[in-house]
């Protein structure tokens, strides 16, 4: 009996070691839920490039666009848990269950690590009479529902939820601001500059060009601290006393039941990429927020985000399930 157990233990250890020594031995696919050229794609390609050097095998980025990202997320979750298919998960993951878009939640994945968080922000037209976030919020509080409009995001998008959540946290009904939905931030900023809407809640990097051109003003960032690339923009806490933070996060995930050693290898390689000079310099240069949370820390983060998203969606009235 003892002999058999020892043999089994040795075999197990050998196979584990064997797998560890061998992974990765062929190219890895990194699935991205958004189109080439966008911010998410940029982050994914940075990571893919870094991982390729760390792991010594090609990491191919595959853009699986569609349905607000649910197609890509579903594909990552369905892939074989051998470490050769991983994905960049994004904030929208927390909305699929609540919005009845899909039955998929963070629990359908093996969380590897969170790498980025871009807080949403408050942008107004440069010629607007609002010079501070406080004025915006007070105008909304005092005004009739529907007086003010925001754009730059589809229904249930990160910026929509972030702004709505912010209003909710300081006691204003989020539905007082009407959403003019667009598929991305750029059309929203176009509307803002053309005078069709009053607010765009997309992140600071997304509005940077328009701010520099003097067409748009950034009044606050809905993050825990100021963004280094935009040091003059106060946080929502500083400007409104609202201790609220929301926006878009991105992290690497893998299919569920990933073997522990593969997970370990991925996590440690990813950490090196995250800390590498190339990654930090490029991300900071664009104003993307660097945040790290690995393994169980990431899982906790995802769980909190899932719950918070559900609450905000309920407050906005777009939650379809309990």
């Amino acid at each position: 009996m003892l002999k058999r157990m020892t043999l089994a233990a040795v075999a197990l250890a050998a196979s584990v070691l064997a797998v560890q020594a061998k992974y990765p031995e062929r190219p890895i696919t990194l699935i991205v839920p958004w189109a080439a050229g966008g911010g998410t794609d940029a982050v994914a390609r940075l990571i893919a490039g870094g991982l390729e050097q760390e792991l010594g095998t090609p990491v191919n980025v595959v853009n699986r666009v569609g349905a607000g990202g649910v197609i890509a997320h579903a594909e990552i979750a369905k892939a074989a848990p051998d470490g050769y298919t991983i994905g960049l998960a994004t904030t929208e993951l927390s909305t699929y269950y609540w919005g009845a878009t899909g039955d998929i939640t963070w629990k359908n994945f093996t969380p590897i690590a969170l790498v980025n968080f871009d807080p949403s922000a408050i942008h107004v037209n440069a010629t607007s009479q609002w010079k501070a976030a406080k004025e915006v919020v007070e105008a909304i509080r005092a005004g009739q529902p529907g007086t003010y409009k925001m754009s730059g995001v589809p229904i249930g998008g990160a910026a929509h939820l972030a702004f709505g959540g912010l209003l909710h946290s300081i006691g204003i009904d989020p539905n007082k601001v009407t959403l003019v939905p667009t598929q991305g931030a750029a059309p929203g900023f176009q509307q803002l500059a053309a005078g069709g809407v009053h607010i765009v809640a997309s992140s600071l990097p997304e509005g940077a060009s328009m701010v520099e051109a003097g067409k748009v003003r950034a009044l606050a960032t809905i993050g825990k601290e100021r963004t280094a690339a935009f040091p003059n923009v106060p946080t929502a806490n500083e400007a409104l006393g609202a201790n609220y933070s929301a926006g878009a996060w991105r992290g690497i995930v893998a299919p569920p039941k990933l073997p522990a050693d593969v997970r370990e290898r991925l996590t440690s390689s990813l950490k090196k990429v995250y800390e590498s000079e190339n990654f930090t310099k490029t991300m900071k240069g664009r104003g993307f927020g660097l945040v790290w949370a690995a393994g169980d820390d990431f899982a906790t983060y995802l769980d909190k985000d899932f719950t918070q998203t559900g609450d905000v969606m309920k407050a906005i009235g777009i939650r379809q399930r309990d």
Binding site: G37, G38, P187, A193
Partner: peptide
Amino acid sequence: VFGIPGDSITAIAIGV
């Protein structure tokens, strides 16, 4: 001038 893509090609080009 604004980072707003004029078509699908420039949408990608802006990223670059």
